[in-house]
Design a protein around this nucleic acid. Structure first.
Lengths: 154, 154
DNA sequence: GAGAATAGCTCACTGAGTGAGATAAATTGT
DNA sequence: ACAATTTATCTCACTCAGTGAGCTATTCTC
């Protein structure tokens, strides 16, 4: 069954198993996002956009439509549509960028944050509990590993 | 800035940071899938379907259209379309299920595996190297954590 | 074996995302 | 200072992925 792809190297097999588990988590997160989108009357893309906008806010970056397009891996036109949808739903506000007159600053509204908190709150609490149960050293290992993986994907 | 969502509890803040990092990995994986889909002339959904089918094969499960629909979080009609696209592209084969005459068994073709290996191979090798660099204990911590997280999401 | 439930499909439709091209602000060259 | 170029975003027309309604065939239940 698919020889050549998974040779009988136990170390390698264990590493693959772990990577598959990580992918499994990624996939389930994506499904959760889709489910949330459905309950909120949004699309998965819209939710992903909101998440990225909140990330930008947390990191202190200025979120512009162009930046968002890059984050979503979509064209600027599609991103324009996403922004219009989110704006119409009252989930984001478009403020003028004072550094560049062509661009605009995107800001997530409090209502959107509350909505996300309502849906993802319980899950997040569970995850926090799970994470806090780890020792500081274990958390460091995890954090370093995830950082390395994120860079490897890019 | 968004008071109340992230209180000044250092333990909690560290846990949140870690969870955000995990989400970051999930997001980048999704982007990589989208990029692969584009180069292969497929859609992100199609690639996700192939991944799930390979997962099923690895786990020794019989992958039916209905099962796949559930895995993708989509309707059965949309899944039918996905299957038709993948079948037309020669990436999967439809075999008759002998346990249930209404259903069919989906099997990923060798060409699709080769295609995926070609694109994700280098990334996978990097990830394996990163993962193998960990001690056995560290791998166990990671594996357990990821398993718990996956269950928490469900 | 009749009735209910289940697995998958076709059809008609909506709308998300793309390509081509327009507009307007910023940057560069002279 | 001002024309030429580049950059950031948007509009328009179109394609096709995904949904809802409803059909057929097979399996399960009594």
């Amino acid at each position: 069954m698919r020889e050549g792809v998974m040779p009988a190297d136990p170390e390698r097999a264990a590493a693959l198993e772990l990577i598959h588990r990580l992918r499994e988590v990624a996939l389930r997160l994506e499904l959760a996002i889709g489910e949330f989108a459905r309950t909120a009357g949004l699309h998965a893309t819209d939710v992903r956009a909101l998440i990225r906008l909140l990330d930008a806010e947390r990191a202190g970056l200025e979120a512009t439509p162009g930046w968002l397009a890059g984050q979503l891996g979509m064209t600027s036109q599609a991103t324009t549509a996403v922004i219009h949808r989110l704006e119409a739903a009252g989930h984001i506000e478009r403020l003028r960028s004072r550094s560049d007159g062509r661009s605009s600053r995107l800001q997530v509204s409090d209502s959107a944050v509350a909505l996300g908190w309502q849906f993802f709150g319980p899950l997040l609490e569970r995850l926090i509990t799970t994470t806090e149960a780890l020792t500081h050293d274990q958390q460091t290992v995890l954090s370093d590993y995830l950082t390395t993986v994120a860079e490897a994907i890019d």
